[in-house]
Design a protein around this nucleic acid. Structure first.
Lengths: 264, 264
DNA sequence: AAGTGTGAACAGCTTCACAGCC
DNA sequence: GGCTGTGAAGCTGTTCACACTT
């Protein structure tokens, strides 16, 4: 019964422009891109990068979809949300689609990222230079541990958490990552928000309370494993029936998030 | 154009018992729990643990939902999928609901987890003892780097990847985590599957091809950040309208996965 | 002939609102 | 009175299939 009530987040999970309670979209351009689509756009972008390296100039929705692990109808619908950049009878121009996706995702002017919590996982995240390839320089590190404050990781000094209000605005931080223990997460979150951070990636096993205009995404490894355990236990779909469409390979259940961190 | 085609995973994302193409569920008991619900059950379980520590004996759906960051109707429907364990007029018994969730998630007989790729992030994952609290002992570690093979992390020896066929069955591994560079991931995945692993948590930025009976969940940090960048860029919902339901706090967009890793 | 873009059907998940039980 | 469990309504996201373009 103790425990802080975590906000009645009725409005969660899936949502786009709530805009005015009534009104089918006042007067915008593209009409808002579905959340699920945005996540996949990031995947397509990664795949396009690989294709470009391989020297491809154009791709069909069929090919791109196959490599991205979705079906082609979904891919086409996803891309249709950002406009018509394909050529009928031909496919998509790899380079221009890449640019278009980068633009839509807001990667043209890159974001500065702050990471709070530099022990174990946090340290690994900080050490991984150039997230997923590029675009997200971790520019500020914070912790409370006196043994960690002051050291450099990947050339970046670890500041004390109390300096968030000074350092974050100075570095132009717009995205925060929280990799602290659960107890500290809410307090850290509040400080990031006060410092102007609009988006947070939360690795701590707690539900964060934030003002409406702040977006939180969470990565909870224990939950991931438990969901997998559920399927191992034979609940889920115990290997049961045949897949109506594909013959052999390819059942991927996957959350709804994106990618991964290469390292080693 | 090069690039291995990644399987036409038409059947992806959200899916339960496909069973026979026709037939509204042959003759099973609970009727299959929705994927989205399973993910949240894991969250409820975590929250119940906190409540139990705080000495609570019963919780109402309202309270539990508040702490878990969902609305109470959703929580009740979620719990209804696993049976009727609440008491009308009172709420849920914390301890018995905990046990029930553990049973449904298959945590009563715990799963052995293998981790492949022990550099940077992998090292952090291995070092984090007792995932999210409990239930998932990492019992086998693998890498190809001669400098890493043979060392111990948290008391566990790192084996060479080529020993997967021997070590995994020996340790009874049912869940694999892949934290290798992207190029190595598919090959590692194949070896895990050959060694009998049924569920995989993939941190490498690649879409994995697996047989139908194997489940893959992925965690892609670059994609998470890009989705956040999208919202920072003002696409998404720029802070626009008022939330029809809640007054102040609480817009959490969150992917659809679960928890986090405490550390530091 | 090949392949995109999209309306329309469909499926799954969420929210509502209330009947039923304590 | 309080609170659970659930049919029914509503919404979001997926899949189909085809008109349209090159």
């Amino acid at each position: 019964m103790t425990l802080p009530p975590q906000a009645d987040s009725s409005t969660a999970e899936t949502r786009e422009t709530p805009d005015t309670p009534a009104g089918p979209t006042p007067g915008r351009a593209v009409r808002a891109i579905p959340e699920a689509t945005v996540t996949r756009l990031a995947v397509y972008l990664r795949v396009l990068g690989q294709l470009a390296e391989g020297g491809a100039e154009t791709v069909s929705s069929e090919e791109l979809a196959a490599v991205a692990g979705v079906n082609s109808a979904k891919l086409r619908k996803d891309l249709s949300h950002i406009g018509s950049y394909g050529i009928r009878g031909v496919g998509y121009d790899v380079a221009s689609l890449q640019h278009e996706l980068e633009r839509v995702l807001g990667l043209d002017h890159p974001q500065a990222v702050a990471l709070v919590g530099v022990g174990n996982l946090g340290h690994a995240l900080a050490g991984y230079g150039g997230f997923g390839g590029r675009g997200f320089p971790v520019t500020a590190l914070f912790d409370v541990d006196p043994d960690l404050v002051g050291i450099k990781i990947n050339g970046i000094v670890v500041h004390h958490v109390r300096d968030i209000p000074r350092e974050c605005p100075a570095a132009g931080v717009t995205i925060g990552m929280i990799a602290t223990p659960a107890q500290a997460a809410q307090s850290v979150c509040d400080q990031l928000v006060a410092a102007g951070v609009r988006s947070i990636l939360n690795f701590a096993p707690t539900v964060l309370q934030v003002p409406d205009e702040v977006e939180v995404r969470k990565v909870d490894l224990a939950v991931e494993l438990q969901v997998l355990a559920f399927h191992v236990a034979g609940r889920g779909n115990a290997a049961g029936g045949v897949d109506p469409d594909g013959p052999g390979m390819s059942r991927v259940v996957t959350g709804r998030n994106g990618s991964a961190v290469p390292l080693s």
